[in-house]
Structure formats: structure tokens, C-alpha cells
Design a protein around this nucleic acid. Structure first.
Lengths: 209, 209
DNA sequence: TAGATTGTTAATCGATTAACAATC
DNA sequence: TAGATTGTTAATCGATTAACAATC
């Protein structure tokens, strides 16, 4: 898997390829051409070939792409085969739903800890994990060295907490809070899940079409 | 508010401007220059001026931008001042959390109905709304004419259900399910919230930096 | 071999950045 | 008026699409 420099636009599309290919695989298909896949995904064949060619070796002229091999290959590029250990910060309603309904393994992560400040929540089990007090964060991290943090805390708590986590070696944030972790720390990776932003975009679209 | 053709890239950024400006407003600031805002948001001043100039009349040479006016203006562009009526499909764990914790009004929507197929859930109240049986969808829609649907159903239910909703006049989907509503229906607006996709992207980033 | 389909280069298109004249 | 800062045009950069030679 020789990767030169992969543009962020390509990376953004990979999960969607992965989903479509997984579906095709499940349906029993074994090969697909860029043209056929383009039709299903509403892309151009050219774009698919360009995207996949960033990584070399997936296609075969005159044949197309082997679905299983491509699926596994993209999974490997995304790092799904090598789970990153992660902790959840904030085990409120959202945190609980996310923790208990996401199959993290499927997406390249392994949830190893959960923290909250609420005495009501501390000590309870979520997704098979005992919720610890935030006071225990330092001890836990020096023992387990989690690399990623799922930020399900109120926005007000995010600035200080993210500083603390970065100090403890966390390099990736799955951020549900409103607070732009990446601005002060361009060296860490952040993926934001901002419900409000997507709703506002939908509002715009609905009203302008 | 004269809008020619606004590119999708600009629209995508508007909610983030809106959030930052709301914050600045709350902090008591009254004016800001593109340079200052660029620093805070980690953009270029040039991009901010280009973006805002799509809509005309926000800035003033030598002065900058009036925060309140800009905030309100962007809100208007996004259509936040004119709520779209929406219904929720699927009131499982995710649906409940979303319904009860999102202030839809704040983002340009008004939740007017909720539907499920589970007898356990039907009849209960969520966010002040009584959950109806999916059998009542047609009657409800012909009376209330909701324009948007929040899809919190299992992916398997999404294809058929989205067809049905489009037939009933729904033109916008906030889609939590895995199913690409937009492919068969390019005429409707869709905003996807795919937790898995963002996690996979984070996985890639964490492993490649 | 002939047909299909990729890999890859070149052309186009769009978005971002830089520069500066207009103007508050 | 002088200084600041926008609006806007031009330059650059990157991403997408088109085309076709390579090759399975």
C-alpha cells in the first residue's frame, strides 16, 4: 500500500466507498468496474479511478476491481484493522447512546475508558465499561495511554479538558462539543460532529431549491 | 439580501461563521475586521471577505463588520428565522436523545410530529410530542404538511420510507440512516449524519500524522 | 485476438489566495 | 485628511473531468 500524499478530499470519500463496497460484498458481487460503481454512487468513473489510483494496485485493466480486495484495502488505508484505543469524556445522554450503539471496532477504535464529573453517573457501567471520575484521568491515561478522545461534554468544559487530554498524549478528537479544538492545536486530529451545523445547512437547502 | 449563485463551499462554512459570531456577540463585541475574525477562525481574511461578499452589504470599508448585523444576516440566509416544520421518523434511543436535546428552533426547524412502528413507543411523549404509529403518517402529513424529515430509523427501513415521505411532500432529509436518499432523488435536499464515516476519517488521520 | 477497462496525462473547472484600488 | 479595511479583480492552486494509450 504505497501512499504518496493523499489529499483530504480523497480521504473524505473513502468511508463512503467503504460502505458501498461492503454492501456489494454482502450482496455477493465479486467484481465491479469504475463505470458501474460510479452509477451506483452518483460519481464519475473518472473520479473513482483517480481516487483509487492514489494507492496503486487495486484495479486490473479489462476487468475492473475485485470488490473484496478493494474493500479490505480501503479498510486498511483507513486503519480499521488496527484499532486505536479511545476514551469517552462526558457520559450524559448523548454519550450513553453513542457508547452503547456504535460498534467502534468496525470503525477502527476500541473504547477503553469513560469519564464524567457527575456523581450520579460515576461508577455505573456503559457499554461494558465502568465510568470513572475525571479525577482519575491522569492515572488512567498513564496506564492505558489512549490515543483518541470522544468529547461528549458540554462546550464550556471542552477548552480546559482538551488541553489536559493533549498533555496526556491524546492526538485525536471525535468532537461533539462546540469548541474548536484544532485552532489552538493544529498538531492534533479532530473530527467534528456538529448536529446544529448540518441542520442549518439543511435549512438553507430546503429554503433555496 | 441579493443572492446570485452561492457555491456549496460557501454554504458549508456559514454555520461556523454563525457560531463564532454568536459567541462574539455574547461576549459583547460589536465590530470585527476580516483579519481579526480570520485569526480566530483559522481562515484567511481574503476568504472571509470573499465569502461574505457573496451576499453584499455586510461590511463597511475602513470599519469592518458589525457583528450583530452580520450574525442576523447569516441567520436570515440560512433561513433560521423562518422555521421549517419537520417530523421525526424512528423514535429509538438516538431519536429520543436528538429530539429532547436539540433546540430545533435555533437551527431553523420546528418539530411537529414523531412516528415509530414499535408499540412500546407509540403513544409516549417525546420532547412534548406524542409519538404516532407510522400508519397515521399519511393523515398527519396531509393535515400538517411537514417539509422535512429526521430519519432516525434503521437503514433497512429507509429506502421505502423515504419514497413514501417524498410522495407526501417532504423535500428535506436529515439523515442518520445509512442509505443514500439523494441518489434516486436528486431533487430533494439531504444532510447526512454518518457517525461511522467521521470515525473512520479520524482513524485515518490519527494513524497518518 | 478483440473487447473491456484501467492507469495516467492533459484540459477544464472551481475555489482559494494575493493584491490593490475604492471608500468609509 | 490619513488610516483602516473592505470589495473586487487577477493569479494561483487544487480538484474534477475528459481522453486515450497501455494492458489484461
Amino acid at each position: 500500500m504505497k501512499e504518496q500524499h493523499i489529499s483530504i478530499s480523497v480521504i473524505k470519500r473513502l468511508p463512503r466507498y467503504y460502505r458501498f463496497l461492503g454492501e456489494l460484498k454482502k450482496q455477493g458481487f465479486t467484481r465491479i468496474s469504475s463505470g458501474e460503481l460510479a452509477g451506483r454512487m452518483n460519481l464519475t468513473a473518472s473520479q473513482i479511478r483517480q481516487d483509487l489510483n492514489c494507492f496503486r494496485g487495486f484495479g486490473q485493466q479489462g476487468y475492473g476491481y475485485n470488490i473484496e480486495m478493494l474493500y479490505d484495502g480501503i479498510g486498511e488505508i483507513l486503519g480499521i484493522d488496527k484499532p486505536t484505543s479511545a476514551i469517552m469524556l462526558g457520559v450524559g445522554k448523548l454519550g450513553v447512546v453513542v457508547a452503547e450503539n456504535m460498534n467502534f471496532q468496525k470503525y477502527g477504535f476500541n473504547l477503553v475508558g469513560a469519564f464524567d464529573v457527575d456523581e450520579e453517573v460515576i461508577g455505573k457501567e456503559v457499554a461494558g465499561i465502568k465510568v470513572l471520575s475525571l479525577d482519575e484521568l491522569e492515572a488512567f491515561c498513564s496506564e492505558h495511554k489512549p490515543k483518541a478522545a470522544f468529547m461528549c461534554v458540554p462546550s464550556a468544559a471542552a477548552p480546559e479538558l482538551s488541553e489536559r487530554l493533549i498533555g496526556l498524549g491524546v492526538t485525536g478528537f471525535w468532537n461533539f462539543s462546540h469548541y474548536d479544538i484544532g485552532i489552538k492545536h493544529p498538531e492534533v486530529s479532530v473530527e467534528n460532529v456538529h448536529f446544529g451545523d448540518t441542520l442549518m445547512r439543511l435549512s438553507y437547502k430546503v429554503k433555496n431549491s
